[in-house]
Structure formats: C-alpha cells, structure tokens
Amino acid sequence: MSRITACFQQLSTEKRAALIPFITGGDPKPAQTVGLMHALVKGGADIIELGMPFSDPMADGPVIQRASERALAAGTRLKDILDMVRQFRQQDAKTPVVLMGYLNPIEYMGYETFAKAAQAAGVDGALLVDLPPEEVGDIGELFQRHDLDPIFLLSPTTQPERIQRICQAASGYLYYVSLKGVTGSANLDTKAVAEKLAEIRQYTQLPIGVGFGIRDAASAAQVAQISDAVVVGSALVQRIEDTPEADLIDTVTAFVRELRNAISSEAPSAATA
C-alpha cells in the first residue's frame, strides 16, 4: 500500500482530516528545507507538499512567487529537491511527500528520468499545476508505474464531465482549489466548498483536500469539517519569509501545531464517536 493511502486509512479510523502544509523546496536556502520538513511533521503534518521552484509560477500569488524566487536565487535545482526528499526519508519513512510545481523543469529533465529519480528518493505523488488531464498523455501511467500518485486540481468552475475525467486520471487524493484566483487569495466560502465537494464525491472515493485561502487555525478548522485534508501554503510560506533564519524551525513547528490542534479539536470523532 502506498504511503498516501496508508495515511488516509489511518486518518479515517481516527475520523480526522489530514493536515497538508506546503513549503517551497530551497526556500529560503536549500540547506534549510530538510530541517523544515521534519519541523512540519513534528508540528503535526500528515502529508508534506514540497514545491519545486519555477521561474514563471503563473498560478501562484505573490507570497509563493517570492518563495520560488528566493529558492532559485539560492541555486536550487530540480535534482536538489529530489535529494532533499531522499535525505528526509533517511529519518522519516512514513510521512508521504508530494512534489508540487510546474511542468517545464520536469519536461526538461525527462519524464522517465524524473519518475525514476523521484521513486528512488521516496517521493509519493506529484502535482503538476499546469498539466491538466487533457495533456497528461502517458505521464500519469508512467508516474503510477513508479509509485507516484498523479494528483490533480479541481476548481469551482470544473464541469461535471471534466470532474469525472479528472477523478479517473488521479490517484492518492484530489486537490480542490477553493476559490477563483491564485494561491494566497482571501475569502473562503465554506458553504460553497461543501456543496462542490458533495458533487465531486459522486464521482470518486478518493480523499479530497482543500487548499487556496486557508490562512489560520480558524479557517483550517472550518475546512477540516467538510474535507478529507486541509492544505495550507501561502500562510506558512509568509511566515518563513517573515522569520529570521535562527527562529525558522520553532516558528514553523508552532504554526503547524496550531493548525493541527484546530483540526483535531474539530474532529467529528470527538463529538460523535
């Protein structure tokens, strides 16, 4: 069983939503990423989304754009990201790691080369933001052959026939983008999200994570009640930007713990089990 599937099975017995923090690999410097990944786990992360920096992150807001710029300025390369996962795996064999980023660096490396290297490093899934199922071709199958779950986005405007298509192409989990716009935008409408998730669940048994617009413990707790996973990116990356390097680990651990406590206390199991 894959780490991602095992993780969601465990969570379903605990009746709790997963917490999936996102950080950009190499931000602020490559040497800090592995330590930050362990800090995320220590704070209570269930799955880690690790961003692969790209020069032209078209779907990202300013916070994650700046993280990409910092990582690239510090010399981060795609192979370094894979190496960070490999190092992380030496101490943590359990926490799933999903790589998130844009297509071009992977296309340049070669899909087969990337898939092999990611598998060897201990990566569990890949979310390529600018690769919709219409363009995925054999890449999804190639990834699955290398034990990488292809993770796809769904949005408020995704139509039923495409929801179906995306659900068929995906494995591991699905990532629902909770609002129109780029990462880090404001205003989350929990009721609208709940309705769309109900629609998506007609087509799939896969767990559904919700991201874009979750800024703090309160919004994380709200989303945890209606989804299988809560993805927090910009709010965390903003803290990395604002924190002096010496305090990074503590700040990140504390913020993730705050989110995790908010999610756990909202778990339906506490009230109904």
């Binding site: 779907a59 919709p132 219409e134 405007t157 995704t158 139509q159």
Partner: peptide, 22 residues
C-alpha cells in the same frame, strides 16, 4: 480541437483557467 499544432500548442494551464478558456 485542443489547440495542438503537431506536438506544440495545447492547453497547459491550472484547472482554474480551463473553464474560462473553454
């Protein structure tokens, strides 16, 4: 129909743009 000129072109965007483009 999906905008391919041979192997080039296409629709390589985030899901949020798929419906507006359609």
């Amino acid at each position: 129909a999906l905008g391919h000129f041979g192997p080039y072109g296409g629709v390589f965007v985030a899901e949020t743009l798929m419906q507006p483009l359609a």
